[in-house]
Simulated scan of single mutants.
Amino acid sequence: MSWRIYLRLGRVSNLPTVWSNTLAGVALAQAAEAEWPSASVVVLMVAFSLLYIGGMFLNDAFDRHIDARERADRPIPSGQIGAREVFTIGFGLLGAGVLAVAVHAFAAGAGLLPVVSAAALAGVIVLYDAWHKGNPIGPILMGVCRVLVYVTAALSVTLRRETPVLGGAALLLSYLIGLTYLAKHEGAYLAGKMPRFTLRRFWPLALLFIPFFALLPRSFGSAPALLLDAAFLAWIVFTLVDLRRGAPGAIPRTVVRLIAGISLLDAVLVGPSFAAALAVGAFALTLWLQRFVSGT
């Protein structure tokens, strides 16, 4: 089996956004106590990468019949790989990801909470993959997947509960609901059933802006923080302007750009720091990798 098919199934170009989510969850939990680079953070990045890729494999496996109608070039409907193999790899990667979190939690003395959170993440991934088409809460489920990366990463490195993780997770959830709402229409767009963008149809995209306005007051008095906020806002506006023009491929292109923007949001949430700089680097790396492997 060609490794290119596995890369495509796993949407590996988006992995840097998973790494920046991990950085943000750790940084928000530990604040100034975080040490970079950290072997602990690297282990967690690997664990969440396994969970993400496993989820992407299962997404194609569960969507194979729909893809046969709307995206016949996907690996399963095009006959490049069998559904059974994709299911096996997907569930295997989910199990490996949870196991990696468990090993880390045992070694770090973090207790069972990180393992429970990782298992919950795996469960929500499967639920989303199996039941996101036509599901009105599908965007929320997708957002919860990324939120649980924050929560699991935080629980893995600190036993404290008075951290800004939940606040950051709520803002991340808002952004991801808007993003996933748009992504839900990509199949219809590619099938030629929805050729034009309308604000009436896409009003949930307003949720993309909530993190900017919620965090802006915190940034006053800090030029680096304002610069991060401005970069995040500019990226959203840039992507939506292109969508509004209705150019060919607008929705798929906007989706992958907004996926990359997850790392920019991570940087804004963390605030000016080395972790934020790494998150900005993850944003740039995602855009570069998407040139070679589709992010959707």
Rank of each mutant, 00 (worst) to 15 (best):
S273H: 11
I125Y: 00
A100G: 00
N21C: 04
G95A: 06
L121H: 06
R74F: 09
I89V: 06
R245H: 09
R74I: 13
F91I: 05
L171M: 05
A183I: 06
P217L: 12
G261I: 06
G261D: 06
L51I: 06
T180Y: 01
T239R: 13
I81T: 08
L179W: 13
V116L: 10
L207P: 10
V124P: 00
A284N: 09
A61R: 00
L121T: 02
P195G: 11
F91N: 03
A47C: 09
L28R: 14
A122T: 01
L93V: 03
V157F: 14
W235D: 14
S20C: 09
I177M: 11
R11H: 14
A29L: 08
T158H: 07
A119T: 10
L258V: 13
G123Y: 01
G295K: 00
I259R: 00
L208V: 07
Y6G: 02
L112F: 09
S294W: 12
R146H: 14
R11I: 13
G178Y: 09
R160L: 14
P139N: 15
S263G: 04
S156A: 15
S40C: 07
L228R: 11
V46P: 00
F62D: 00
L141T: 05
L179F: 11
I5N: 12
T198G: 13
V280T: 05
R160T: 15
T180L: 03
G221W: 11
A34G: 03
A96L: 08
V46H: 12
V157Y: 03
K193H: 13
G109R: 05
D63F: 01
Y6C: 10
L112S: 15
V115L: 00
Y189F: 04
A47T: 03
G187A: 12
R74P: 11
N135R: 09
L171T: 08
A72Y: 04
G246H: 12
L9R: 13
A118E: 01
I5Y: 08
A282H: 09
A24E: 10
I177C: 05
A31S: 10
A225M: 09
L159I: 11
G10W: 04
S222H: 15
L173C: 08
L289D: 05
I210L: 10
V126E: 04
V151H: 12
G82N: 11
Y175F: 14
E35H: 14
R71L: 03
G167I: 15
R74H: 13
D129T: 07
R244A: 11
L15C: 02
G82Q: 07
S20W: 07
G167S: 15
V116I: 14
A284S: 14
F57I: 07
A206Y: 05
A130F: 00
G123T: 05
E162I: 11
P139R: 03
D242Q: 11
L289S: 06
G92S: 13
A214M: 03
L278V: 13
T158V: 04
G10V: 06
Y52H: 04
R160E: 12
L240W: 02
F57G: 02
P139K: 05
